[in-house]
Simulated scan of single mutants.
Amino acid sequence: MGNDILYLPIISTVEDELGQVEEVEDFSRQVFCEKKSIPQNEFFQAGQSGIKASCVLVVSLFDYQEETKAKYREKIYSVYRTYERPDERIELYCEVKAGG
């Protein structure tokens, strides 16, 4: 497994003084990951759907809990697709979110 660190969000709900509830994402859950580049065909297919594929982050299947966002090297990514591998790892196909 790679020795890069990926941060997954812990989501909590906070109520403000007006009684409005909002979700707060705290990217504090650390897991090990390995970064791979997006395969050419994936980049093309994602692009046809309007997705700007950025990278593939591989994590242990046991570390991943269906998160739709991840923070890697100070960038917040949106997970648009996953692929479960036979070696108990899962590939997270990511795009950079605007303003992230």
Rank of each mutant, 00 (worst) to 15 (best):
V31W: 02
Q40E: 15
E17Q: 15
S49Y: 13
E67K: 03
F27V: 06
S49D: 13
F43R: 10
V59S: 01
V24S: 04
P9W: 11
V14P: 04
Q20N: 15
I51K: 05
Q40T: 14
L57T: 07
M1I: 11
Y64Q: 00
L6F: 05
E34W: 03
I51V: 14
S54Q: 03
E91I: 01
Y83I: 05
F43K: 10
M1V: 13
G99P: 03
P39V: 05
P86W: 07
I38C: 05
Q45N: 13
R89L: 12
K69V: 09
R85I: 07
N3C: 09
C33I: 03
I51E: 06
V58Y: 00
G2R: 05
D4E: 12
E22I: 11
G50K: 03
I5R: 09
S37K: 12
Q20I: 13
A53G: 11
I76D: 04
E74R: 10
L6A: 09
V24W: 02
L57D: 05
E84R: 12
R73N: 14
T13V: 09
V96F: 08
I38P: 01
V24K: 10
E91H: 08
G50E: 00
E23D: 12
D87W: 07
K36R: 15
P9Y: 11
L18R: 08
R73F: 09
E91G: 02
Y64A: 01
L8D: 02
E91F: 01
Q45K: 14
E84W: 05
R29Q: 09
G99Y: 05
C94M: 07
N41S: 14
T13R: 08
R73E: 14
D4I: 00
E42L: 09
S12T: 14
S37I: 09
F62P: 00
E25I: 07
T82I: 15
I90W: 07
Y83E: 12
R85L: 13
Q48P: 00
S28M: 09
I38Q: 06
G50M: 00
E34S: 11
E17W: 14
P9T: 13
E17R: 15
Y83G: 06
T82W: 08
R85H: 09
A53M: 10
V58D: 01
L6Q: 01
I10H: 10
Q20T: 13
S12V: 12
M1F: 11
K35I: 08
R89A: 07
Q30R: 15
T13N: 08
R29M: 10
K75S: 13
P9F: 11
E22W: 08
V31D: 02
T13E: 13
S54G: 07
G19P: 04
K35Y: 02
E91R: 05
I5Y: 08
I11H: 04
D16C: 06
E74P: 00
F62M: 11
Q48F: 03
F43P: 02
G2T: 04
N41Y: 12
E42K: 10
E88D: 15
K71Q: 11
Y83P: 00
I10C: 03
Y77D: 04
C94R: 02
L57G: 06
Q45P: 00
L92I: 11
N41M: 12
Y77H: 09
